[in-house]
Design a protein around this nucleic acid. Structure first.
Lengths: 136, 136
DNA sequence: TCCTACGATGGACGGATTCCAAGTCAAGAA
DNA sequence: TTCTTGACTTGGAATCCGTCCATCGTAGGA
């Protein structure tokens, strides 16, 4: 049984066949899928599921904090089911692949070879997100 | 006289009226404009300049490392002419405004109040960009 | 079982960006 | 200076992501 489905149910998330399939596609796996990929996988089990429904479900899972959105620079956003444990991302600027990393210490200082997973890291970006004075 | 234009010329960047205007719009100012804003400002001086040309020029400036792209989650990318000095970004999740910050120490640890510029910071993202093993 | 508010559908729509084929021009050569 | 040519520009079409909307369906409480 899935932890994710369990949690969603307990939080009063109205369960439908479509939402269940979307949650199942994301659950477990530590892959970072695009909305389109989620839709494709969901459609294998529920052929009539619509793109809009997948976008809705993903948006809600993000709002609930169960899934994180990762933007990959111009490309389609990717959805990270591993939102509950803090971690950082390694993004390929060519193909958009994402991998999770858990570097220790100051991310701007050295990034241990052992954590690079074979990537050729060329830059580190730190972004603080929040509300600006006039929007707050 | 502009440092940026100077450098570009020295690096053998073929100079055209359009490219000069785009570079001039970005130069100096530490604002973070969208491609459309750059186009609008460029068009004030060169009314016939096309959007495609602006996109081309921006892409080249990014490739040359003179300008940095900042993606703001779903919204249009913004272009940061301050690419030569390392710094981080504060992004408003509501209106997309961007401000530069230069925090010292570990970005994941505390983020000094004095650096927040009035923002209500809700999360910090660290992204390592580069090439994955199969693209490298 | 019945109700009804919430969810699903899919096609139209919109913004941002890229593509393309044709025309134009910067800058080195003569 | 003029010539030449490859690089640049143009603008409209095309693409990619994502959202909207009116309508239909259904989960889950009464």
């Amino acid at each position: 049984m899935s932890d994710l489905l369990e949690r969603l149910r307990n939080r009063g998330w109205r369960m439908t066949a479509q939402r269940r399939v979307v949650a199942e596609v994301l659950d477990g796996d530590h892959v970072h899928l695009t909305a389109d990929e989620v839709h494709a996988r969901a459609a294998r089990r529920l052929p009539e599921i619509s793109r809009a429904t997948v976008y809705n479900a993903l948006g809600e899972l993000v709002a609930l904090g169960e899934v994180a959105e990762v933007s990959t620079d111009g490309r389609a956003k990717r959805y990270d089911p591993n939102a509950r444990r803090p971690h950082q991302h390694l993004v390929c600027s060519r193909c958009g692949t994402i991998r999770d990393v858990h570097p220790s210490g100051d991310p701007l200082a050295g990034f241990p070879e052992s954590e690079r997973m074979g990537f050729l890291v060329s830059k580190v970006e730190v972004t603080y997100r929040g509300l600006c004075p006039s929007c707050a």
